[in-house]
Amino acid sequence: MRRGGEKKWDGAGGQADQALGRSRGGFGTKVHMSCDGLGHPVELLLTGAQESDIAQAEALLADHRPEEVIADRGYDKKALVEEIESCGARAVIPTQRGRKVQRQVDRHAYRERNVCERFWSKAKQYRRVATRYEKKAANYLAFVKVAAMMVMLQ
């Protein structure tokens, strides 16, 4: 029987250090990205497949002062929206359907979210990005960045 990488005595190592995890879709890696208005990536982060999107929101927005933050329903959290608005930016994040109080969202601005989606459809044309061949997370992130540069140069 084959096992995943063993953790060291101090808790380091193993699959979590290499951004690998199990989700409903199977074993894999999730790439989180923030991009500018032109669809160019500003920040790229790797996590295991089981990690939620909202857990990475603060890291994606750190050291950046956007005018507008456009995100999908996965980033709907009252504390995050308040933090975005306290920085002087506008939060264009639809409220989850199950909430009692629905927040109003500018639909025209929300349609601009497809810029990031189009970036990923172009980046996943590179096979090394679409299917993670690299064992180490640093190597995979490097290939994601190379694919991002190639998409920006097109």
Rank of each mutant, 00 (worst) to 15 (best):
L38A: 14
R22G: 08
R118P: 06
R128S: 06
R3D: 06
V92K: 00
R128W: 06
D53V: 03
M33W: 02
C87V: 08
C35A: 15
E68Y: 11
E43M: 12
R99C: 09
A109H: 02
A79P: 05
V31Y: 00
L61Y: 02
Q125P: 04
V92W: 02
T131F: 11
S52R: 01
G98T: 15
E112H: 12
D76L: 03
R73W: 00
G37T: 04
Y75F: 14
A123H: 00
A12W: 00
H64M: 05
G25S: 11
M33Q: 04
R22C: 14
G11F: 04
G39F: 00
R97G: 09
K8I: 08
G5F: 03
A71E: 02
Q125L: 11
D36Q: 02
I93N: 01
I93R: 00
K30C: 07
K122I: 06
T131A: 11
G25D: 07
R2W: 10
D53F: 01
A79E: 13
Q125M: 10
E6A: 15
V101Y: 00
E6L: 08
S34G: 15
K124D: 09
A89L: 03
Q15P: 11
I93T: 06
G13I: 11
L80A: 09
H32D: 01
E6K: 07
H40D: 07
P94Q: 08
R24H: 13
H64S: 09
Y126Q: 10
G13Y: 04
R132Q: 06
Y110V: 06
R97P: 00
R3Y: 11
F27H: 08
V115A: 12
A59I: 06
E58D: 14
D63Y: 02
L61S: 05
K100V: 14
C116P: 00
A55H: 01
